[in-house]
Amino acid sequence: MGGDGAEFTLPDGMSIRALPKVSLHDHLDGGLRPDTVLELAAEIGLELPADNATALAAWFAEQSDSGSLVEYLKTFQVTTAVLQTRQGLMRAAHEFVLDLADDGVLYGEVRWAPEQHLTRGLTLDETVEAVQEGLEAGVDEVRASGRIIRVGQLLAAMRHAGDGREIAELALRHRGRGVVGFDIAGPEDGFPPSLQQPAFDLLRDALMPCTVHAGEAAGLDSIRSALVDARALRLGHGVRIAEDLEVEALPDGEPGGFVTLGPLAQWVKDRRIPLELSPSSNLQTGAIAQWGQTLDAHPFDILYQLGFTVTVNTDNRLQSRTSLTRELSLLADTFDYTIEDLQDFQQQAAEAAFLPVEDREELADLIAEGFASAIAHGAAR
């Protein structure tokens, strides 16, 4: 299907980009445009590994394709470096919204770590206000063009940098003013959610929703801690919940088989805890290495077929050279998904959004209408 500039279609020729979408796991500092990185770096005198947008985009993709989350995260030393000013944050947030809208996104949650943007004198509150101003400018521009989009902030505490309480307090201060939830990010292995217990206790008492990066670079214990200690309503990635599945193949290579769910997997499935799966990123960071090195080895399909609440996400569009359209296209190609399957993924993401139930229902209606229109249009061709 080529690069992200291609017009991704289903086998019947229906455009995937035109379909309404929900984006739940998308990092601000992983969603910059390469030319924006170049321009912001020039303003602060930052030397980059490439001097043009094409070469810089290739550098990010190559550096990210290491099979290691730790190595993957090193690319963010560049993107966070250019996001240390109010104008830089505003511009990145503004363009973030425009790029989501161009990809057919109706609702998006942008996650980022304010504590990583303080080296040029901004306070934590000023960083959040700058991002919110940029997001609102983007939303206004999208709506002026006759389209619909809504965006909320997820504030992330870096899991290796303390107990997270300061960022939890920050999220609560800006609740109702753009912030819709809390997350922890950074190196997962060795830094379980329980280390941020003070933050999660505070958020629990304030009834602030949380999603937690878990089940990416660490396994079932990390997922259990996210659910039990952090009381996460969603799992950021969560792909390694598949370690709690026992698959018994049929003899002689016959298709099919039997799957037994362990207690943690059963809990996640039965409680419909959403998995924020990011297929391309999961390949790059080695999150699915135990199952294989290609997308057809990703547990996405078995989790979907078993009835888990799966959502499709980009994680970092710059590092993975991707978009939601591309991720959906790759999945459709790999697992022969239909437009009805793609609609399922969007409806499950809409239900998982950190929005009031009335707004989630409205979003679900917009998705249903958009898919119905696309199907009718395709049938009429």
Rank of each mutant, 00 (worst) to 15 (best):
residue 114 P to L: 06
residue 46 L to V: 10
residue 25 H to D: 10
residue 54 T to R: 14
residue 118 L to H: 12
residue 42 A to Q: 14
residue 56 L to G: 05
residue 113 A to T: 13
residue 118 L to I: 12
residue 79 T to Y: 04
residue 73 L to K: 06
residue 45 G to S: 00
residue 104 G to M: 07
residue 24 L to H: 06
residue 88 G to N: 04
residue 121 G to R: 10
residue 63 Q to I: 07
residue 86 R to W: 04
residue 121 G to F: 13
residue 102 D to N: 10
residue 35 D to N: 13
residue 50 A to Q: 12
residue 61 A to D: 11
residue 73 L to Q: 08
residue 105 V to N: 00
residue 60 F to K: 08
residue 41 A to H: 05
residue 28 L to S: 05
residue 23 S to P: 01
residue 25 H to N: 10
residue 34 P to S: 02
residue 35 D to G: 01
residue 109 E to R: 09
residue 109 E to I: 11
residue 108 G to S: 12
residue 32 L to R: 05
residue 81 A to H: 08
residue 36 T to R: 01
residue 63 Q to F: 11
residue 61 A to K: 14
residue 59 W to M: 05
residue 80 T to K: 10
residue 106 L to A: 07
residue 98 L to S: 09
residue 29 D to R: 02
residue 87 Q to Y: 11
residue 86 R to A: 13
residue 103 D to Y: 05
residue 30 G to K: 01
residue 104 G to D: 05
residue 74 K to D: 13
residue 95 E to G: 07
residue 29 D to G: 06
residue 96 F to T: 01
residue 60 F to S: 04
residue 43 E to I: 02
residue 57 A to E: 14
residue 95 E to R: 09
residue 121 G to C: 13
residue 68 S to I: 10
residue 23 S to A: 14
residue 90 M to E: 15
residue 107 Y to G: 00
residue 56 L to M: 08
residue 109 E to K: 09
residue 48 L to Q: 13
residue 48 L to H: 14
residue 46 L to H: 08
residue 63 Q to T: 13
residue 55 A to I: 04
residue 40 L to T: 01
residue 103 D to M: 08
residue 77 Q to G: 15
residue 96 F to R: 00
residue 75 T to M: 03
residue 112 W to M: 02
residue 102 D to W: 01
residue 116 Q to H: 12
residue 93 A to M: 00
residue 41 A to R: 09
residue 74 K to I: 03
residue 77 Q to D: 14
residue 73 L to Y: 13
residue 83 L to W: 00
residue 36 T to N: 00
residue 38 L to F: 14
residue 41 A to G: 09
residue 92 A to I: 03
residue 85 T to L: 03
residue 64 S to M: 13
residue 78 V to G: 03
residue 115 E to T: 14
residue 90 M to T: 11
residue 121 G to P: 12
residue 75 T to D: 02
residue 68 S to Y: 07
residue 72 Y to W: 09
residue 80 T to S: 10
residue 65 D to G: 01
residue 113 A to Y: 01
residue 62 E to D: 14
residue 81 A to Q: 09
residue 30 G to W: 09
residue 56 L to K: 04
residue 119 T to N: 09
residue 92 A to K: 01
residue 55 A to Y: 10
residue 87 Q to R: 14
residue 91 R to G: 02
residue 107 Y to F: 15
residue 74 K to S: 14
residue 52 N to H: 15
residue 64 S to G: 15
residue 105 V to K: 00
residue 113 A to R: 02
residue 36 T to D: 07
residue 26 D to I: 03
residue 110 V to T: 10
residue 77 Q to R: 11
residue 106 L to H: 09
residue 57 A to F: 06
residue 103 D to L: 08
residue 79 T to N: 07
residue 99 D to M: 12
residue 101 A to E: 02
residue 84 Q to G: 04
residue 62 E to G: 05
residue 66 S to N: 06
residue 47 E to S: 15
residue 113 A to F: 02
residue 58 A to M: 11
